[in-house]
């Protein structure tokens, strides 16, 4: 009895499996790769200057776009508009996207991100998102600090 049952099972399951496994083309589900070079984890960035931004992007297919998002990571309880020497500051928030469609690899190097003079010093997150032509997305998040006496970045 048992071999018959097993045979029956195999037949029943084999039909859908063979049918569908054969037409599974595995179209692109590979995410792009982000290699963020500058800034690095824990970097201190100078308020009132631009950010030295540098990274390598690559994908098995074609890239589409990348986005840089900077937002504060203050304590979470006491942040509202901290003042320094009587001067009003506002938490820095940045979000901008760049088009890199049509490229398989991209070397990014620019100084387009500006940190205004009135930015609140403190801990921030910098997140880089990157998408490829078919919508696969990857991201990298690092901790940075904004400060008035940050290291001068090399050009």
């Amino acid at each position: 009895m048992k071999p018959i049952i097993c045979f029956f099972t195999i037949c029943l399951t084999a039909i859908p499996c063979t049918l569908f496994v054969s037409c599974d083309n595995d179209e692109d589900t590979t995410k792009p790769v982000i290699n963020l070079i500058e800034p690095e984890e824990g970097d201190v960035l100078q308020i009132g200057s631009d950010v030295h931004f540098e990274m390598e992007l690559s994908d098995n297919d074609l890239l589409r776009s990348y986005k840089v998002d900077i937002h504060h990571n203050f304590d979470g309880h006491t942040h509202t508009s901290a003042t320094k020497a009587g001067e009003e500051t506002i938490p820095f928030s940045y979000s901008h996207a760049w088009d890199i469609s049509g490229q398989k690899n991209a070397s990014i190097h620019h100084h387009e991100i500006l940190i205004p003079e009135n930015a609140t010093p403190g801990d921030y997150h910098l997140v880089v998102y990157c998408t490829d032509a078919s919508g696969n997305e990857s991201y990298v998040a690092i901790n940075i600090e904004l400060s008035h006496d940050g290291e001068e970045h090399e050009h």
Partner: peptide, 15 residues
């Protein structure tokens, strides 16, 4: 739900 490749303007969101 299909990823569109369009960036969201909302904070902490990708596409």
């Amino acid at each position: 739900l299909r990823p569109t490749g369009e960036w969201s303007v909302l904070p902490h969101a990708g596409q």
